[in-house]
Amino acid sequence: MSNRTLPRLLQTPAVIMLLIWMLIPLSLTLYFSFIRYVLNNLRRPEWTTPSFSNWRGFGNYEFVLNSKDFLFAIQNSLLIVGSILFLTVILGVLIAVMINKAFPGQGIVRVLLISPFFVMPAVNAVLWVNMILDPVLGLQGLAVAGINDLIGSLQSAPGVGWFFSLWPEVKPISFRATQTSAYAVIIMVTWQWTPFAVLIFMTSLQSEDQQQKEAAVLDGAGTFSQFRFLTLPHLGRPIAIVVMIQAIFHLSLYAEIEIVSRGNGNKNLPYLIGEFANNNIGAASATGIFAVILANIVAIFLLRMIGKTLME
């Protein structure tokens, strides 16, 4: 007999490890989400150790749902993730179609384009928020100052000076401020993940049926019609995959938000969990369960799609 028991058993270490990795912390989160559990409370010291006697039922969930930060974090998560998805897909498709056909230096352009993807998130955030977007010292600040200087010198010019003195002074945008920090995160993550979208769309474009395109040309389809009726449908599936994979990654954005504004005016769910976890573990855990549910909604669709191609 071809004894395949041993070879089959070889997958068990990985399975057991991942099972432990998933189950133990997650059940603890579930447990903590149903009890009163805080790290510091002088009046009720019994709440500082996890125990079933501190059972709170859905109290933590109610507390989280009623906190204004939660709604804000959800909204903000959706704003950030949605904007990034929109921008990366549009840019990704355009760039992929543009560089898909051979031109001088195509290889170098590819390398230039893909590079941002490998920059570690912490450096990405530090680089953008300081060196580029800083309203005074970053490139933005320098550019704004330069424009203002130019206008200033034009204002004192003879003859046309009166015209330029009607111009307002240009104001730089502070991306660390409450209202704008989310935009900084959107910009830097879009910069980092557009290359990913480009790479996947390019891979997919290479498998596009060239004979089908030739047939379309003979049928009188122009460049735009080819793109609209052949290329775009061909990219449908990769687009769906890019959207879902990114959604899963970006729902748990953390380092960028921490670095840009320390969550000031710009919390998402992971950040909110981190904040709760400084003291109120019960609330942090309940928020965690919400995050799991949110991620699962996306994950189910993604897994289905992958599952279809898996055993082909």
Partner: peptide
């Protein structure tokens, strides 16, 4: 892989 890390941060 799709489990949000933050959900199990405290545990």
């Amino acid at each position: 892989k799709m489990l949000p890390a933050a959900a199990v941060l405290y545990p």
